[in-house]
């Protein structure tokens, strides 16, 4: 699991790559919070294009990041979601809370 972040004009993009399961989630969450605390972005995008696998542990990571951004009045959305993670987000009904765009292939 890899977490990378870039910030431009107050908007942070967090790139997740690899497999986001329970084994990877704690470290991923720690890194996301560290980046947000350091850069204090206005808005935040999670880019999932590099994600090979995700389960419900990833949902908790997204929801926690959403809460974190919401507290500071910022927005969060999820972009470039590959098929398998998208099926997980669909099954959990995350789109009712967070804007999601699919990875076009």
């Amino acid at each position: 699991m890899k977490v990378k972040a870039t910030t431009k004009d107050g908007k942070m993009t967090i790139y997740l790559a690899g497999e986001l399961d329970h084994n990877a989630a704690r470290e991923a969450m720690f890194e996301i919070e560290r980046q947000i605390d350091e850069k204090l972005p206005r808005d935040c995008v999670i880019d999932m294009s590099g994600l090979a696998f995700m389960d419900s542990s990833g949902i908790a990571v997204i929801l926690k990041t959403y809460k974190r951004m919401h507290e500071s009045g910022g927005r969060l959305w999820v972009e470039n979601v590959p098929k398998q993670p998208m099926r997980v987000l669909d099954a959990a009904g995350i789109e009712r809370i967070i804007r999601i765009t699919i990875l076009s292939e």
Partner: peptide
């Protein structure tokens, strides 16, 4: 049931729902 969890903030309570739908 969807969203039921005893796992706190690190869990979302969606595991069984996902297993059922997959």
């Amino acid at each position: 049931a969807p969203m039921f969890t005893t796992g706190g903030e690190e869990r979302s309570g969606m595991g069984f729902t996902i297993m059922e739908s997959f």
